[in-house]
Design a protein around this nucleic acid. Structure first.
Lengths: 357, 357
DNA sequence: AACCTGTTTGTGTACGTGCACAAAGATAAT
DNA sequence: ATTATCTTTGTGCACGTACACAAACAGGTT
């Protein structure tokens, strides 16, 4: 049981006052070469780890942190990320934090541009970004970097930026896995359907694209010789989707398995339910309420959880520790992909809830 | 952004001094009815949540906590539980804790009895129990309850005891799930093998028994009409096991899938590898190094993770919060059962590691 | 009333850290 | 040498909580 090392101890060992050590630890300047060297020498030896909860206790500053993601109302996925962020703040209650949630319409590029402009005006201490539009995100990232404002990504990473860290599912592996699981559920002779959303504008950062690539690569590797059909899907027009699925399933009767690359798996599940199509297996992503429902009633066979709450939690935690302790985190962080079934869903949900860590 | 409520605030509102509030919060006695009522009234209204990290700061007491489990050397499973326990202690660094690890041989009842006697002599402030022998555990639990020493279970719960909480996988569902997954991997016509360890003595708390029940119940529900064969397995005699498996697989050529109810799935995997049996699928439990290896090389198809590190973490965290803040936790806590495959294992491992929460 | 005894209440300090402010040196200008 | 200015260093307080100790009160006995 080794004794914890304090600022006071370091000061004594280096032959200076605690104040001087504090100035060095926080880069406040006004320290002589001599003192700096002495203290840094000691620091190297002892491996000082400050206690963030006590730091917060006497910290005067209030940190302003902006969180920008698609509107949470567009799905519980983003809500979970927001919950994780709040959890991290709760845990660091001794630190004064002012959060501003600036969400945008993920299907409207102007909404996103507008919000990103606001962020730069606000000049926050840090930013959490849930990206959608690639070019806009890169521009924001560059401007933040210019101003030395640290930022983290949740949900996905955008190439060409230098975040403090990102927390994302590995969407490629996710797609790969979905197809592998689906294959184990359907007859050898069956075709496969791949459902994805239609997007307005060009956003190549899109998670669905990575998932799709993973899915196709799996099928290639597994020498899948039957047909693969794509279903395009609009997020807005419910009736149009109904028609499209109707047409799809009647013209492709040999499709016995479908993967849904976005979080709207429940729409397909409901369609199958309504039309009494009982021999089509479904593998989907995201533990949204309707998806959970469809998993429980057996329409969805496997559901992949990307741990959005944990993403948000870590994105915020990382920022706070960087702001207060200058801790440099691991940059690339891929979430575990949890495979959830009818049997394990309740355990999974309870866990996520009590992940009050 | 609601302001945090402090002891001082409560005191002011109740018209007493902070010292009095403190006495009430910590049941130190010597408080008049009048003062107690006034303070408890305020407490009801404001919902005071003390900050455990600051409590630790001025706490004089050193808590002695005993952890008793099977030897960690018997498998990385218990080591993971121990790691979780250490993690919780790390996080509450401001609290003075003295831990004593008293491990026993899980195949030797005398070893267990011996260790449990020692615990009672030590008179610790709290105990974490990883149970194996049912009767001995019940006796220990009763004696601890008599002395008002709180305790938590990890790995499994023993009926007839009243722990502060337990953190365990739902072994029944685990077995059920294993069979369900295995079924999706093998031909319709295949038989199934169920491998379990031989135990010395009678321990009906055994996790394997619950898993087995789950497995059989699944097969019944799914109207499985082929044969189910049991393989008995000794943990000690490696050569004997080799012979047993040899006999088993040659006399049951129609077994194309096996579930292993204990953590030694890798033994079967290695046997299949060595004997070039390529058409038998395996579903196993626990992310031990050899199991991970067998998963990666494709011999094990699904591996179930019971989150042992999280069990240990919560078991310790719960005790600390009870000791310091008198927080009464949720008693029954079943871990999520994570289904891990070749594709997701690396993500899962990285996550467990950085679960530095 | 004066004293003792036991109960109830209030006050003050320590814990580790951040930061404001005072003190002490150092350098330059008069 | 004195003063002013700037740099470097040290000191002390606040934060929220636990706990030791002192103060105040109540009741009973002489």
């Amino acid at each position: 049981m080794k004794k914890r090392i304090r600022i006071k101890d370091i000061a004594a060992q280096a032959g200076v006052s605690p104040g001087t050590v504090d100035r060095i630890l926080h880069n406040r300047g006004n320290v002589s070469e001599k003192a700096r060297n002495a203290v840094e020498e000691v620091l190297k030896q002892v491996g000082y780890r400050p206690n963030i909860h006590l730091s917060g206790l006497s910290l005067k500053k209030t940190y302003e942190i902006v969180i920008t993601t698609p509107h949470a109302s567009h799905g519980e996925y983003w809500e979970s990320i927001h919950n994780g962020i709040r959890e991290a703040i709760d845990q660091h209650e001794s630190i004064h934090i002012k959060t501003t949630y600036l969400t945008y319409d993920q299907y409207n590029i102007y909404s996103c541009q507008n919000v990103f402009t606001q962020i730069l005006i606000l000049m926050p201490d840090a930013v959490i970004i849930g990206p959608t539009f690639k070019d806009e995100t890169i521009e924001l990232a560059n401007k933040l970097a210019e101003k030395n404002i640290p930022f983290t990504f949740v949900d996905s990473m955008v190439e060409g930026t230098s975040p403090l860290a990102f927390y994302s599912a590995n969407h490629y592996i996710c797609g790969y896995l979905m197809c592998k699981l689906l294959k184990s559920l359907i007859p050898e002779s069956s075709d496969i359907g791949v459902l994805q959303a239609i997007r307005i504008g060009d956003q190549s950062a899109n998670t669905s694209i990575l998932r799709r690539k993973g899915a196709y690569d799996y099928l290639t590797e597994a020498n899948f010789s039957n047909q693969i059909h794509t279903i395009q899907f609009s997020v807005y027009e419910a009736q149009g989707n109904e028609d499209k699925m109707n047409e799809f399933f009647s013209s492709h009767p040999n499709v016995k398995g479908v993967i849904v690359l976005n979080s709207r798996g429940n729409v397909v599940a409901n369609f199958l339910e309504k039309n009494k199509i009982n021999d089509v297996r479904l593998v989907c992503v995201d533990l949204t309420k309707p998806n959970i429902c469809a998993l429980k009633n057996g329409r969805i066979n496997f559901l992949i959880d990307q741990n959005p709450d944990y993403q948000g939690y870590m994105a915020m935690k990382t920022l706070l520790e960087y702001l207060i302790l200058q801790t440099k985190p691991k940059v690339e962080n891929y979430m575990p992909l949890n495979i959830v079934t009818k049997e394990t869903i309740d355990l999974q949900l309870e866990f996520n809830f009590l992940k009050k860590i």
